[in-house]
Design a protein around this nucleic acid. Structure first.
Lengths: 220, 220
DNA sequence: ACATTCTCCGACTCTCCGGTCGGAAAGCTG
DNA sequence: CAGCTTTCCGACCGGAGAGTCGGAGAATGT
């Protein structure tokens, strides 16, 4: 019974995720979520006490998927450069997905975290913990690259900063992609960025040999 | 009379800007804006037909300030590296300002542009034009740097992409700053980024001489 | 001082939506 | 089938806020 209940609760949270990402928290009505989940509005309240609680559940559901994808990369390859490129691909995949729900939800999270009266305004730790779990995974990838002798030892000290900067860039470019849909070519933007960034991390100063071939050369 | 009227209209738009940036579009009530502007709610409607129209005016008011600051940089110095660092400083200033209204408004603009029912959802051209004006200014700075022989000619071809990437990064890191207030040191993050980025643009491969001294050395 | 216009706003309406409640339907037990 | 529990939901409540309206009061003109 309780098992059945949590399954249904997660189902509702998934539907909620799509509706929240499409309309944003304030404009997404519980009724609309209920309709798309094929249930009555009151039924939603059997599973979640408030709209806020439902939103938190929806975010957590989405975040766990994201983190799972990130960890999957670590299993797919042990080459640090490959890993970085796959991370960029993960963002890119999000961008190319219909409606870009992931990016929109990221924007929504930022809004709800920093705005007075936002859902996460009084629970910033929830978001911070997610953020740090993600950073941690990426830092581990960089450090593993140093251990394997492929990345410069010097970056170990800045590993966290580097990862945060990478995330910031990728989040930022996807947001610009939302605004300038069709005008900016996100794939090329990211390719250029990675092509410039990765050589800075490599142990060999000879970029032409170890350079990033993942997206093909962009610069001359 | 008409002159007086536009002055007051702009005054209202400025107040609206602070309220929208603090509470976000949906939660900011016209009444609250009226209170903070020291006028009655109905008076607001003398100047703006709808809440949406007021929001657009508020955004435009803020954007013009931002663009003016950006142009000011071009007048202050003609050194391209200086200019880039001053652009980063402009973002940083925004971050260090109380409440970070600029960043919040950027988030709000993204939300209102890409969400169904958002204010700019049906007028994406307004945002796109602003975006392109900003990109254009930054591109001109890069091209001027190439002309003066300080930046590599090769970047001219990618100037727009480079500027968009820089903006994406800066916007992204400020957003992460909103989430992780106090945990991430934005100044150091940006310093690291600029320190890595600028040498890639310089004509001389000798980074130790021409390197970016603006924030001081971060890497070893 | 009177008329006219302009600026302002208090009080109202109307709609939307989060959340509740009481009871119907379905499922389980014996 | 009868009794009990669990799951569901239609109908309602209350509050918030966008936008309206009619008139008060100030400013301007004559």
């Amino acid at each position: 019974m309780s098992d059945k209940k949590t399954t249904k609760a997660r189902e509702i949270a998934r539907t909620a995720f799509t509706v929240f990402s499409r309309n944003g928290y304030p404009l997404a009505s519980v009724e609309q979520i209920a309709i798309e989940a094929g249930i009555g509005k009151s039924t939603v309240y059997e599973y979640y006490k408030t709209k806020e609680e439902l939103f938190v559940a929806a975010i957590m559901e989405g975040a766990e998927d994201w983190i799972a994808d990130l960890k999957e990369i670590g299993r797919k390859t042990h080459d640090p450069v490959q890993r970085l490129n796959l991370i960029a691909d993960l963002y890119l995949k999000n961008h190319e997905e219909e409606q870009q729900p992931g990016t929109r939800m990221f924007v929504e999270v930022v809004t709800q975290t920093c705005l007075q009266g936002g859902v996460f305004y009084d629970r910033p730790h929830l978001i911070r913990e997610l953020h740090q779990r993600i950073v941690r995974i990426m830092v581990d990838y960089l450090l593993a690259g140093v251990s394997r002798g492929q990345l410069r030892p010097g970056i170990a000290r800045h590993a966290e900063k580097i990862c945060i900067n990478l995330m910031a860039y990728l989040d930022g470019i996807l947001m610009h992609g939302l605004i300038e849909e069709g005008y900016i070519n996100i794939r090329e933007q990211i390719a250029l960025f990675m092509e410039q960034m990765i050589p800075l991390l490599l142990i060999s100063p000879d970029k032409s040999i170890n350079g990033n071939q993942h997206y093909g050369k962009i610069t001359e």
